[in-house]
Computed example of a mutant assay.
Amino acid sequence: MTGGPATPPTPRPPLGPELEVRRLGRFDYARARDLQQELVAQRAAGEVCDQLLLLEHPEVVTLGRRTPEGAADGLDLPLVEIERGGEATWHGPGQLVAYPLFLLPLGRRDLHAYLRDLEEVVLRTLADLGVEGERREGLTGVWAGGHKVCSIGVAVRRWVTWHGLALNVSNDLAGFERFRPCGLEPGVMGRVADLAEVPADDPLLEAHLERHVRGVFGHR
């Protein structure tokens, strides 16, 4: 995972006008993973337009491809080994999870730039609340108030993206305390609700995030 400039060095094409957003609410991790794989295949075949899944998971710890052996030993939570980059992280209620399933066109097939675009979406979402987010050199994700508030890990298949980002909105941070989330010290994790008032009509910031996904990636 690497940091990068705030804006891409060269103009890149928009992904396309159509985006279907699926708000799934509290949704089991295994079901979400299966759904992603189905939609990735359909998107690669041109059977559906770009998809954005917005949801929160029951408590689960996912282990990315770079997770050291034994990193999550002894946890009394469900553990799932998955295809995304990065190390172990926690998901649970109060955390907004976004899975963009986007077919990257020529001129946009740069996963480092794609990660920076996802960070930009989160930075703009935080700015809506008056919170100044930041990137950190050499680390993927978004920080605010001295803490990491958003973890990002992605995979790609036939140039269709899957997995995505997890924004800590109002979740209990205790879920991170029993291992090293993203290979970092547990105390580095923070949440938006400690930095700003979360809108009562958008408690997971789904509407804010969707708007900025459309703006950054060029969907109608």
Rank of each mutant, 00 (worst) to 15 (best):
E81D: 12
L111V: 15
T125S: 11
L126P: 02
T89G: 02
L126A: 08
L101W: 02
E87S: 02
L118M: 13
T140P: 00
L104D: 10
L104N: 05
R108K: 12
L106F: 07
G86K: 13
L104T: 01
L111P: 06
L126C: 03
W90E: 00
A72S: 12
P100N: 11
G74A: 08
L111W: 09
D73S: 07
G138H: 04
L139I: 15
G85H: 06
V80H: 13
G130M: 12
P78I: 02
L139D: 00
D110H: 03
A88E: 04
L104E: 08
V131C: 10
L115V: 15
G70Q: 08
L106A: 14
G130N: 14
P105N: 09
L106H: 12
D76H: 05
G133V: 10
G138Y: 10
P93R: 14
E69I: 05
W90M: 01
V122H: 09
I82M: 06
E119Q: 14
E134Q: 12
E134T: 14
E120Q: 14
E120M: 03
L118G: 01
D117V: 02
R124L: 09
A98K: 02
L75H: 04
R136M: 15
A71W: 04
G70I: 07
H112V: 15
T89K: 11
L123D: 12
H112Q: 12
G86L: 13
W90T: 00
G70V: 09
G74H: 04
L96T: 08
E132A: 15
L96A: 04
V97Y: 10
L126H: 09
G107D: 10
V121R: 02
T125Y: 05
L111Y: 11
A113H: 00
V142D: 00
D76R: 11
R135C: 15
W143E: 00
E119I: 14
L106Q: 14
L75A: 05
E132R: 15
V142E: 01
L75P: 04
R124S: 13
L115N: 05
E87L: 06
R136T: 11
L118C: 08
E132F: 06
H91M: 03
P93D: 00
G70W: 06
V80T: 02
E120L: 09
E137K: 09
E81F: 04
T125P: 07
P78D: 03
E81L: 00
A88G: 01
G133H: 03
L77P: 04
G92E: 01
L123H: 13
L104C: 05
R109T: 03
Y114P: 01
L77N: 06
R116T: 08
V80L: 13
